[in-house]
Design a protein around this nucleic acid. Sequence first.
DNA 1: TGCAAAAAGATTGTCAACAATCGTCGAGAA
DNA 2: TTCTCGACGATTGTTGACAATCTTTTTGCA
Lengths: 239, 239
Amino acid sequence: MLALHTPEGTLADVASTKLTQAIITGELLQGQKLNEAELAERYGIGRGPLREALRQLEGMRLVKRIPHAGARVVMLDRDMMADLYAVREALEGMACRTAALRMTDAEIETLRLLLEKHAEQIEATDGQIYVQSEGDFDFHYQIALGSRNQMLIDLLAGELYQLLRMCRYRTSRLSARTRPALQQHRHIVDALTARDGELAEILMRRHISGAWKSISQMMDEEHDSKTITYPRSKTASGS
Amino acid sequence: MLALHTPEGTLADVASTKLTQAIITGELLQGQKLNEAELAERYGIGRGPLREALRQLEGMRLVKRIPHAGARVVMLDRDMMADLYAVREALEGMACRTAALRMTDAEIETLRLLLEKHAEQIEATDGQIYVQSEGDFDFHYQIALGSRNQMLIDLLAGELYQLLRMCRYRTSRLSARTRPALQQHRHIVDALTARDGELAEILMRRHISGAWKSISQMMDEEHDSKTITYPRSKTASGS
DNA sequence: TGCAAAAAGATTGTCAACAATCGTCGAGAA
DNA sequence: TTCTCGACGATTGTTGACAATCTTTTTGCA
């Protein structure tokens, strides 16, 4: 009983978790075709459970299935990321406003301590850790929990955050705004402490839209240097 | 080639659609155990596709699966409905604000015509149709489409609206606010026409939170008359 | 009589083979 | 040479049987 060989119960759920990880880390590339037989082989399971896992990932918007044509890893292009951040802003803004009313004093205090830990990590690694690590998600996740809205929690934790982590892996070395982000987090906690829901929402929305502006801008620059513009006309795309 | 016998391609997708309908209409009761073999028999398919359909419904939050214990229809209790309406308010408010900027004049005009059709139906049926029918969803769905945010559209159309329709079937005869609702819809279209995103958002949020207050209040009254309070103490609950 | 444990039954999870469908490659005609 | 049609191969969709797990019933003991 040293180590339970499967983190969750069924093979389909295990496969679902592993696939999620593989997609987020980029081990499975964006737009890549997912061959059922090959994946089943790789994870040592039958195609039945694997298909169930794919259906689950489809629900999380990590893969797109087309009947009789197979599943592909979702293409997280710029438009989709923009949509994602817009939805996230609305949802987390609401979470923050609600959390200001419903979180216990103890929970808010825990949040503040969490930020202190983050601050230490930032100093220790000179600004590297905060954004890259999952630490940032802890903060946002704790606030989602604080809203006491189970549907909102599921929505954020189950779907949006997976896509968001996928964004991060793609753009991790682009954005290095760890210190301003931490400062914004601190201000949010202050608003929560003051039980000022409206302010907390505004700060959270600004925090998220700021993050998007930063990422968006960095993508522009990256884009210009590489010039991977998608072919807008069909000028001999074959060769 | 008169009629394609299956609306969608795979059996799993067909089953998914049928199950969704069965759950929403209450043919499958809330909290009811879903026996795989029995359902597969009923729909004339194997258990494989049926299990995939269940996994898909789980993603839509219409059923809750527990490993090795089967799937049950979700319990749409009052708390969950409150959560649902809160999330919906945030999401549709955002959709409305964005739609005010992105919808074409033609689309807004179409919306207005839609409302006129609704008005006729209301007069013809003396206030019955509007809320009960899917007509209301058309309006909200069109605005979601107008946001041009695919993620938001999927979220609303694919998940929240199903649950919402489930609410309706449970509380359809409770709420009869068809005329005020139509009037609110008209004001929203006016705001869209004026391209006033902020006002459009406010009006939509008020519309939705008003709907929830109405439903919530009616549930209270229904509740009091029936007195189905959950047992708060264990006073011989067995008999 | 009441409780606990074990066996029986039912249900879910998994697999491997079969059928249906789609994409591709090549042959033939314009 | 290029387009179309048809056959082949590969992949997905589906099924039924088997294994693992949970639930219920029954039996034995205190």
